[in-house]
């Protein structure tokens, strides 16, 4: 429902489960800390040759909300986004990440390229799995801290029946 006005694009997503998997990998790379990706790349054995096909560049993406949370869209402010693209073997990897960190965008592109090739399982295991674990742990802790602030209402009984 949320994607009604991009119905065409939504259909593309639903029909291509490989795209969903890649989107999920890219989500993890975008949420990762720059140092985490740098360390993962530093630890990567047998580094392949990388061709930079789009040098990292920082720009703006206009963010949109929906009127009332669920109505027509409106622009509510921009965000800095940095993107890069690399070719590794036959794969073109794209990095799109919030912020201005060019190294992070390029590393995200490198891992996206590797993920599309024969090294997918290795990227999943050595790079994405630990980051997924960190994100899940942080989210669980945040949710638990929020849950501790949940109000438990109780009723005071006055008088006797």
């Amino acid at each position: 429902m949320a994607n009604d006005h991009h119905a065409g694009k939504g259909c593309v997503r639903e029909q291509r489960p490989d795209v969903e998997d890649r989107r999920d990998a890219m989500r993890v790379l975008a949420l990762a800390g720059a140092e985490t990706l740098a360390a993962a790349w530093s630890d990567w054995q047998d580094k392949p040759r990388i061709e930079d096909i789009r040098r990292a560049e920082t720009g703006l993406v206009m963010l949109r909300g929906r009127i009332g949370g669920d109505g027509a869209s409106f622009n509510f402010g921009e965000a800095t986004v940095t993107r890069a693209a690399v070719r590794i073997g036959g794969s073109v990897g794209h990095g799109y990440v919030l912020g201005r960190d060019k190294d992070k965008a390029r590393l995200a592109a490198i891992f996206d390229a590797l993920w599309q090739g024969e090294a997918r399982a290795r990227v999943e295991r050595e790079v994405l799995a630990p980051i997924r674990g960190d994100i899940a742990a942080a989210d669980t802790r945040s949710a638990a801290r929020t849950a501790a602030t949940r109000v438990d209402f109780f009723t005071l009984v006055r008088g006797e029946d």
Binding site: V61, L63, D70, D139
Partner: peptide, 19 residues
């Protein structure tokens, strides 16, 4: 900065709620 484009509308219904 150059403008890359516009994002998909954010889904506040799917927010990771902190408050």
């Amino acid at each position: 900065l150059p403008r890359f484009g516009a994002g998909e509308p954010v889904d506040t219904g799917a927010m990771r709620i902190e408050r």
